[in-house]
Simulated scan of single mutants.
Amino acid sequence: MSVGYLINVLIAALLTLCALVPFQGPAPVFWVTYRLGLTFNEIPFWAIYALIASTVLALSEGDINAAGDWVSVGLAAVTLAGLVVVARRGIRTPPVVRRALEEALGAGTSTRRRPPLVRILVRPFFRRRGDVKRVGNLSYGDAGRRNLLDVYHHRGRPTGGPVLIHFHGGHYDSGRKNTQSLPLLYRLASQGWVCISANYRLRPASSHPDHLIDAKKVVAWAREHAKEYGADPEAGVFMSGSSAGGHMAALAGLTPNDPVLQPGFEEADTSVDAVIVLNGFLAEYFDGDPATSPVNLVRADAPPFLIAHGDLDELVPTENPKALVTALRAVSTSPVVYAELPGGHHAFDLFHSFRFEAVIDGIEDFATWVRARR
C-alpha cells in the first residue's frame, strides 16, 4: 500500500472538510481547523492542484496496486468533489453581491466585471501591484508602533482621488496593519485612491475607547495629510475594517466629531462618507457597555453602510451583523447594503479569491454610488 499517497489524500480530505463544515469543539482543535478552513475555503484550487498531481504521480509510478491503494484513489475522488463544491461557493458570490447592491441602491448600480483569473488561480498570495507604492510606518499618534500607519498610492500620484482607511481585525488584542484586505487596498490604490491601513492600541494595555480614539486620529491625519499622496478628502473619505476593525469602523462612522472621543483634537473633522464592514463583530465591546455596540448608536444621519459577511462565519454568526442592518434600516436615511456570502468563513479578505474579488467589485460600485451623491 502506498502510504505516502494515502497521507497526501488524508491531508487534502482534512482541508476540504474544514472548508466545507466549520468545526466547533475544544479551543486548540478549533483554532487549527478554523485557520485551515478559512485559508482553503478561499484558495481551494491549490488543494485541487496538489491532489490531482499526487494522484497522477502515484498512477504513473505504478504505486496504485493493492486494494487499499484504490480506496485511497476513491477517497481522492470524493475529496476532489468536495473541493469543487468549495470552489463553486466562491464562484457564486458575484451575483449575490450585485443583488445586494441593487436591492439597497437601486437597479443598475452594480457592474459585471471579469474576475482576475491569473491572480485567483495562480498567485492568490501575491497582493502587491507594480503600479502601487506603499509608504510604511508613518506616525499618527504618540503610542509608538501601535500608532503607525501605511499609505498605499499610485506611483504616478494622480490627484483628486478619494481616501480609504482600513483597520485590521484580531479580537482587539492582536493583528497588525499590513496583513488584511490587502487585495482591496492595492486594487483601489491602483485606480487613484489613497489607501491607509493603520495599527491601533490593543488590549490588555488599552481598552475602549482607546481604539476608537485612535481610529478618529487616523481620520484626522488623513484629512490633513492625504493630499501629500495625491488624495482629496473632498472626493470622499471611506472607512473599512475587518472583524474587530469592522466594529471600530462602525463605531467611528456612527460617532462623527464627538469631542469626548477626540481628546486634544476636538476641532478635527472625523466624519466619513461611508463605512465598509468585512466579517465584522458588531455587538457590545468586552466590558458589556451598551454604548460600545453600533446597534445602540444608529442615527438618522448615519453614513451609508456596506456590510459583507460569510454565512459560515465560525466566529461571528450572521445574526450579529443582521442586527445592525435592521437597526440602521429602521432609523438611517442612508442605504445599507448587506451581502451574505455563500460558503464564506471568517476572514475571507486575505487572498485574491473569487469571493473577495467579487466583494471588492461591490465596494467599487458602492463607492461610485456614494461619491455621485455627495
Results as ranks from 00 to 15, higher is better:
residue 28 P to E: 05
residue 28 P to R: 03
residue 28 P to W: 05
residue 28 P to Y: 05
residue 29 V to M: 06
residue 29 V to W: 02
residue 30 F to V: 14
residue 30 F to H: 13
residue 30 F to W: 02
residue 31 W to N: 07
residue 31 W to V: 15
residue 32 V to Y: 05
residue 33 T to V: 03
residue 33 T to I: 02
residue 33 T to D: 01
residue 33 T to S: 10
residue 34 Y to F: 14
residue 34 Y to V: 08
residue 34 Y to G: 05
residue 34 Y to M: 11
residue 35 R to Q: 08
residue 35 R to A: 12
residue 35 R to G: 14
residue 36 L to E: 09
residue 36 L to H: 05
residue 37 G to K: 02
residue 37 G to V: 07
residue 37 G to D: 08
residue 37 G to E: 09
residue 38 L to Q: 10
residue 38 L to H: 01
residue 38 L to M: 11
residue 38 L to R: 06
residue 39 T to E: 02
residue 39 T to L: 13
residue 39 T to R: 03
residue 40 F to R: 00
residue 40 F to Q: 00
residue 40 F to E: 01
residue 41 N to V: 00
residue 41 N to A: 13
residue 41 N to E: 01
residue 42 E to A: 15
residue 43 I to V: 15
residue 43 I to K: 00
residue 44 P to A: 08
residue 44 P to S: 10
residue 44 P to T: 14
residue 45 F to N: 09
residue 45 F to K: 05
residue 45 F to D: 04
residue 46 W to E: 01
residue 46 W to Y: 11
residue 46 W to F: 15
residue 47 A to D: 05
residue 47 A to N: 13
residue 48 I to N: 02
residue 48 I to V: 15
residue 48 I to Q: 14
residue 48 I to M: 14
residue 49 Y to F: 14
residue 49 Y to W: 09
residue 49 Y to E: 07
residue 49 Y to G: 06
residue 50 A to K: 03
residue 50 A to P: 07
residue 50 A to I: 14
residue 50 A to M: 08
residue 51 L to Q: 08
residue 51 L to N: 08
residue 51 L to A: 09
residue 52 I to L: 15
residue 52 I to S: 07
residue 52 I to W: 05
residue 53 A to V: 13
residue 54 S to K: 03
residue 54 S to V: 13
residue 54 S to A: 10
residue 54 S to W: 10
residue 55 T to P: 14
residue 56 V to H: 11
residue 56 V to T: 08
residue 56 V to Q: 07
residue 56 V to W: 13
residue 56 V to G: 12
residue 57 L to F: 15
residue 57 L to C: 07
residue 57 L to A: 14
residue 58 A to R: 04
residue 58 A to M: 07
residue 58 A to N: 04
residue 59 L to I: 08
residue 60 S to F: 11
residue 60 S to R: 09
residue 61 E to R: 13
residue 61 E to F: 15
residue 61 E to S: 14
residue 62 G to R: 06
